[in-house]
Amino acid sequence: MSGPEPVVRTVNLVKIYQTGGVPVTAVDGVDLRVDPGEFVAIMGPSGSGKSTLVHMLGGLDTRTSGEIWLDGKRVDTLSESAWAVLRRDKVGFVFQFFNLVANMTVADNVELPALLSGATPRQARERREYLLGALGLAERADASPAQLAGGEQQRVALARALANKPSLLLADEPTGNLDSRNTRDVLRLLGEVHRDGQTIIMVTHDARVASLADRVVSLLDGQIVDDGAIPRPVRRPRGGAGDVVELRS
């Protein structure tokens, strides 16, 4: 073992669902290592096990076998209450369902995780203002979640997930409901927090989002079939990357 302590490490991680008659192997022996500050995109066809994998990494789903380590600590054996503490302190989530607290304003939804993890009210407010501002939601701070469109709720969920500067941000299709302008705001914010050192694991089929990542992990039938760096542009084109457009035509 070399290098820094990984934020996430899994060893031969397996999930088998046994709801109906036939067992379904959703995740089939995944070995994954994510170092501090890395941004990893997880891609793969529908049903390839992406959601199951990130749910297990966040303790929302139990593993069938294998190991999960977060920040050097074995976590697949933790109780639900221990997981709850871990999530409060270390893991931010954005999932396809936004589960915002319905009877709290947008601002309170975003500040809550920061407060719970020990930030002062002032720190929590400043962080909230920054995040909502970056996502084009400053105006919506006093709204209640029910008053928001789907894409707005999704961005609030992202702001909330980032509120306590978690050591790990987990996201499952966080741009699924966004139009292209809102996607741009989300991209910009993700780029910013990533530059500030945020570790991110994100399931996405949106290539614009995935292309921000350092690495892409491809799943097929519950297995990792590719894991490698996304190439950086070789030339920094002076007259604009003009021929990029021509390349594609």
């Binding site: 079939v225 190439p231 542009p233």
Partner: peptide
């Protein structure tokens, strides 16, 4: 499999260029 994986990364690299261009 190897061809597809390499091509995917290549496309994502191109997408990154487009992001920077935008």
């Amino acid at each position: 499999m190897a061809l597809i994986n390499r091509q995917r990364r290549h496309y994502l690299g191109q997408m990154r260029e487009l992001n920077e261009l935008a």
